[in-house]
């Protein structure tokens, strides 16, 4: 199996210490986290981690099970890049005089979909939301014009096939002990046994 980029989406309780608990699952196995984002989710009170790693599917599957095993984790999914819509946000700080002087620069920025966030006498900050290659390209473009600062956020991703977590959460809440659950999602699909 080939290594490729996988995005792991984790729904969790909002609890101090959980970030560390999740992060060490990866570091313990010497797996580099390419990017990690925490944010609220579509469900109030439930947090959403978005973690990007470069690994084989087999490894990712095992990692996801380790993540899901944590007491405060409700659910973890993994997806390849085809299965998600994803974006990163990049900010670029450039000297304002250059943009003013060189018409070319302004055109280039427009071509790359950059939007000015702040314009000051001394510098201007542009933002680009997009995928890695796009935001990378603009660095190359701006470098000759005195790019002062660059920063890029972690990836955020939406799972194309997901119907959101509201429904899933209801399942979890219905799962009180004793109430015999008919469905065991891990075992539902024969060939995807335990793939979450």
């Amino acid at each position: 199996m080939q290594k490729q980029e996988f995005t792991i989406t984790v729904y969790t309780e909002n609890h101090i210490g959980l970030l560390n608990r999740i992060a060490i699952i990866f570091s313990r196995r010497k797996i580099n986290i390419e990017s990690m984002n925490t944010s609220p989710s579509e469900v109030p009170g439930i947090h959403r981690f978005t973690i990007v790693i470069n690994e084989t599917e087999e490894v990712v599957k095992k990692l996801v099970r380790q993540v899901e095993k944590q007491v405060e984790v409700l659910k973890a999914y993994y997806n390849n890049n085809e299965e998600i819509i994803w974006q990163e946000l990049a900010l670029y700080k450039v000297p304002t005089e250059i943009i003013a002087e060189e018409v070319k620069v302004e055109r280039l920025l427009r071509q790359h979909g950059a939007k000015a966030v702040v314009i000051r006498k001394d510098y201007t900050v542009f933002e680009v939301a997009g995928q890695r290659e796009e935001t990378d390209k603009l660095i190359k473009v701006l470098e000759p014009y005195g790019l002062i600062e660059f920063v890029r956020s972690a990836r955020v991703a939406i799972i194309k096939a997901s119907r959101g977590f509201h429904e899933k959460l209801k399942e979890f809440e219905a799962l009180k002990p004793g109430s015999g659950l008919v469905k065991n999602e891990y075992l539902n699909k024969q060939e995807e046994v335990f793939s979450m």
Binding site: T12, V71, F172, N184, Y186
Partner: peptide, 9 residues
């Protein structure tokens, strides 16, 4: 605990 499923069905 809703996020914890000690034993599956």
């Amino acid at each position: 605990i809703r996020s914890y499923r000690p034993k599956p069905n």
